[in-house]
């Protein structure tokens, strides 16, 4: 038996073993109460309106907005491309493929944050990943993105930069105040840099 034949047979045997052993499931997805408490304390489930605005402007394909309010409220106003999953129907069979998946980043929103947090809590306990909550809900979205208020003149630079971005984003989303429509803010709005919230990070590779 030549060395390479020996090596080939070892690899085939290893492959057969791995094909038949069950996958390691010692890490169940369900969270303990203390793990959940830790997540809530760190606020890892929150997405800030500024981040969301950037992603929407950039047409990030992995974002799925989910409106948790009642169909009535959804009819009256909802964010573009949002789907409606009322909290009362959260556990319906038809939504499970949307909620329990590893592809899209679901962002729950309601008027405030109570409903969306309840929805997040339930799905998180079920072990679903990729569900997030829009910080402050629609109210805060309107306040910060659609009608941003100017910071005091003495504010630090990043406050002012944030305001400039919000101003541009407000125009992009067709928000209330269009008083200061300069070309500069508009071009700023169309191409803000993508600043990802911390997802899993690892270096990419290639040959």
């Amino acid at each position: 038996m030549t060395p390479r034949l020996r090596l080939t047979s070892i690899v085939i045997i290893l492959g057969m073993i791995i094909a038949f052993v069950p996958e390691n499931t010692t890490k169940p997805y369900k969270l303990t109460a203390s793990e959940l408490l830790e997540e809530v304390q760190y606020g890892t489930e929150m997405v800030s309106p500024d981040d969301l605005a950037e992603w929407l402007i950039n047409n990030d394909p992995s974002i799925q907005l989910i409106d948790i309010r009642t169909p009535n409220e959804y009819e009256q106003f909802h964010l573009d491309n949002a789907m409606n999953i009322p909290l009362s129907q959260l556990l319906d069979e038809e939504w499970i493929d949307y909620l329990d998946q590893g592809i899209m980043m679901n962002i729950f929103y309601s008027n405030g944050t109570t409903l969306s947090h309840e929805a997040w809590m339930i799905t998180r306990q079920l072990g679903y990943e990729n569900n997030y909550v829009l910080q402050g809900g629609l109210n805060y979205w309107t306040e910060t993105i659609l009608n941003p208020s100017a910071p005091a003149l003495t504010s630090p630079d990043d406050e002012i930069a944030k305001y400039t971005f919000r101003k541009g984003a407000s125009q992009y989303f067709g928000g209330g105040s269009l008083t200061q429509s300069t070309a500069a803010t508009k071009s700023k709005a169309s191409k803000p840099k993508i600043k990802r919230k911390k997802k899993k990070k690892a270096p990419d590779g290639g040959c």
């Binding site: 492959g15 791995i18 038949f20 996958e23 394909p61």
Partner: peptide, 26 residues
């Protein structure tokens, strides 16, 4: 950006276990 499938693995697309896929790759 078109046709975004997410962070999928071949074994998930084919609906077989990772080990079985590994065996076929070998």
């Amino acid at each position: 950006m078109s046709n975004y499938l997410g962070q999928v693995k071949l074994s998930e697309v084919l609906g077989i276990s990772q080990g079985a896929l590994a065996f076929f790759v070998i």
